[in-house]
Amino acid sequence: MDLSTILALLVSCTVVFVLARVAVSNLSVHNPSRMQNFLEWVVDFVHNLVASAMPLEKAKKFIALGMTLIMFIFVSNVLGLPFGIVTEHHHESKIFGYTYVTDEMVAEHDGHAHVAWWKSPTADIMVTLGLAVVVFFLIHYLGFTQNRKHYIKHYFQPFWFFFPLNLLEQVARPITLAVRLYANIFAGELLIATILMLGFVGFPLLAVWQGFSIFVGAIQAFLFTILTMVYISQAIVHEDHDDDHDDH
């Protein structure tokens, strides 16, 4: 069990939820607060995003999903940027009865086992895989329930022997989603860790890289969301022509 990931997930969820709650704490039709304005801007942004992927009348249902995705992923992406909490362990350590540092691990690291407590949850491929799995099941559930005939038919297009290829594509989708997000964020954190080794010399570089990481985090959140919407759109929108394969 990876305690830091769980902690990070918990923090991310809490931050997103508190942010959203604060924004809607004082809802007003006539005189929206700054936070409400901001959240409404996010709603409009996601609405445009969703609407760009599918017909407008189907877009409304997925705005909440898109908002949750983009906010959660963005917060998760930038969570690891500002600081890190690392503890050093020389003995076996337990928390809530769970052994997170064993004696073998301490021995492996010459008696100085370092545990990072604070990181981006999305810098863990298992977390991004979880998100991708949610999207995967959602796509296939929606496709199967709302657009069954088209959904089944599209596995055998353009010819029946394309079935394995189409199957591969369906499997590749969540994996690419997960790996893309994970790799970007993990690389960012890795580089931060590397720059930190430089000591004080690396400070300007660190600042620049952290700024860029915010940008990357936003882009990745955006990408994950819009790809989800595109997949959903492909699954539920019936199109008569055959070329709705996406390649990425």
Partner: peptide, 13 residues
């Protein structure tokens, strides 16, 4: 790889 992370991520999301 900790499969628990995936499960917790799904549940959390």
């Amino acid at each position: 790889f900790y499969w628990e992370s995936t499960v917790i991520a799904i549940v959390a999301f």
